[in-house]
Each structure stands twice: as C-alpha cells, then as structure tokens.
Amino acid sequence: MSNVWQSIVGPRAPADVDDEKRREYRLPSIFLGLAALSLIISIFLPYWNLTLEAPQYPKGLHVQTYVNRLEGDVQEIDGLNHYIGMRPLEEAAQLERSLSIILISVTALLVVSAIFIHTKWVVLLALPALLYPILFVADMYFWLRSFGQNLDPTAALSNYIEPFVPTFLGEGLIGQFRTISSFGAGYYLACLASVLILVGLYFHRRAYKPLVDATQEKAQGSGTQDSGSSGATGEV
C-alpha cells in the first residue's frame, strides 16, 4: 500500500542542496500556487460582459456574468427580452452557478495538492483547472444558443425577431440594440491559471523527473538484485 502511495506521490526534494537547486524545486510550487490563487480570485470578477446600446439608453445596458451570479441591468434586459419571448436570464445555467464556487474551489485545491505530488500523476490533478476555460466557454455558448433558439412563440414581437444565437464575442445587432460582448477579467484570470499550470508543469517535470527516474533506476537496480540474489540483499 505504501508502495502504491509512494509511486503516486513520488520522491521528496533532497534537503541538502545549494540555492540554485532549491530554486529549481520551488519554481513549480510557485507557479501552481499562483494558478490556484488566480482561480480563486477569478470567482470575484466577471467572466463575461454584455453591453446593449440603443438611443433610449444613453448610458447603455450592462450585464456582468460571474461564475455564480449576474449583475447589472438584468431586470431591464429581462424586461426587454420578454417582448421577444426570451426567458429571464436568471434561469440560465442554474445548476452550474449553484455549484460553481464549490467546483472552482475544489479545482484550485487539486492544483494546490498537485504541488505535493512529484510524479506524472500531477497532470491528472491539474487537468480540471487546465481545461476549465474551455469548459466555461462551451457551457456559456450552450446557454446562449439555448436561450436564443427557444423563444416563446406567443411573445409580442415573435413575428419580428426570429430565433437567433446571441453574439458570444464582439458586436451583434438585435432589434434597435447593438450588442457588444467580451470576456471579463475573471475569465482572463482563469486562462492565466491554465498558462501558469502549463509553465508550472514544465518546471515540475524539469525538477522532479530526474528524481523519479533516479528512484526508478534505483528500484529497478534493487529489484534485479532482489530477484537475482535475495540472500545477498538480506545480508545488506
């Protein structure tokens, strides 16, 4: 059992090394730690921003999408959307939003725990965080499409507005509204976390691969001895 555990956790960094070597071992920890921090901070920042511009709204209408909530002129946009039969924005991604804080925290914790895993299994722990920005976009697109395609056919303006897919990034036009959508700081932090993880994994491999290899060589060496002359080993 402890052998399995050992093979997952991998070797520890030796204590008696010079400063340069110590930095080599610290680098993956720093990058993975920063990645986890970025992820946690991203919870407090908007991931996706939508602005609607029309003459009647000199200041525009703005919605900020956070991982767990919507902020801004949601009520007004819902009010406008009801004319074309679009569901209230709050009905979108309810499951994802309710679980988001827990899932992101767990993802970040996995990244933190990856700091202490010095084998290739580290990739498995870092993978959710690595893929998270892609998953977010996929989910977001699913909901935009779902909302745009499923308009209430009995709505007042259903004859005028055909089902559509709201613009995910950049500018769009719906009715008298120009829409401008863009990623927010939170999403960029999530992407930064992925980059930091990649860099961290690179340094991780550089730092610990030699140790792992050395351990395996040693294990193989002793294993050969084991199978070849157990008596000799026993003497040692």
Partner: peptide, 10 residues
C-alpha cells in the same frame, strides 16, 4: 548547463 537553462526560462 541545464540549470542555467532553467534560470533563463524562469
């Protein structure tokens, strides 16, 4: 040599 390579990339 490899170590200096790290430093550079870091």
């Amino acid at each position: 040599q490899r170590l200096s390579g790290y430093k550079l990339s870091a």
